[in-house]
């Protein structure tokens, strides 16, 4: 599903060059729940951004769902991201002025779908994450766990084959974190959605099928 061949990512900061990814090669199979771990600055989030098409690799090949994401035009990669990738962030990143339902229907309306169709699908998704009764609430009226569930529902809008989660439990207490991880596991098992999750937590890593350790921009080791 995801194939990285000698992927490098170099950032320029003034006159300095910072190598975030230094020739990473790895494969993540369809339906796999892969967990990426590593110390801060090891390049794990950078890899996630590259897979999601939020950034471009400096060199190397990156195939996601059989597409070379590094070579796609901005509009192409945007559409790809919209329909084929789901994102869950550490800081939830819901739009604060929109209700739960409105946040979930965002990807649909960005895609030009009718509001009825979008609402129907969003209601199903909210039901799936157990928050159908909170659909008219604003983010500020909900708990962290609830907000992250809404973010998961939004990420699943187009039933994407890939879900990318960047420290999804980093801002939650352990009990709430567990429920989110269970939800992700459920999604992975239920729909066969490939999940790539970045985390610092060993407990969280336990929910994945495979754990890939990063250090200094390279794959250090893998545990299955």
């Amino acid at each position: 599903m995801i194939r990285c061949i000698d992927v490098r990512k170099v950032y320029r900061q003034g006159k300095n060059e910072i190598t975030a990814l230094d020739g990473v090669s790895l494969d993540i199979a369809r339906g796999e729940f892969a967990v990426i771990m590593g110390p801060s600055g090891s390049g794990k989030s950078t890899l996630l951004h590259l897979i999601g098409g939020l950034d471009r690799p400096t060199s190397g090949e990156l195939l996601v769902d059989q597409r070379l994401v590094g070579q796609m035009a901005d509009d192409q990669i945007t559409l790809f991201r919209r329909t084929r990738i789901g994102f869950v962030f550490q800081f939830f990143n819901l739009l604060p002025t929109l209700t739960a339902l409105e946040n979930v229907i965002l990807p649909f309306v960005l895609d030009g779908r009718s509001k009825q169709e979008a609402e129907q699908r969003a209601t199903t998704l909210l039901d799936k994450v157990g928050l159908e009764n909170r659909k008219d609430h604003l983010p500020e009226e909900m708990s962290g766990g609830e907000i992250q569930r809404i973010a998961v529902a939004r990420a699943l809008a187009f039933d994407p084959p890939i879900l990318l989660a960047d420290e999804p439990t980093g801002n939650l207490d352990s009990k709430t974190g567990e429920s989110i991880l269970s939800l992700l596991r459920e999604i992975n098992r239920g729909s066969g959605c490939t999940i790539v999750m970045v985390t610092h937590s060993q407990e969280a890593a336990g929910y994945g099928d495979r754990t890939i350790f990063f250090r200094d921009g390279k794959v250090e080791k893998e545990n299955t």
Partner: peptide, 16 residues
């Protein structure tokens, strides 16, 4: 800034 980033991340085009 972050909101715009999120919108772009979940599929908003530059034109949008």
């Amino acid at each position: 800034t972050r909101e715009i980033g999120v919108l772009r991340a979940i599929g908003a085009t530059q034109a949008q």
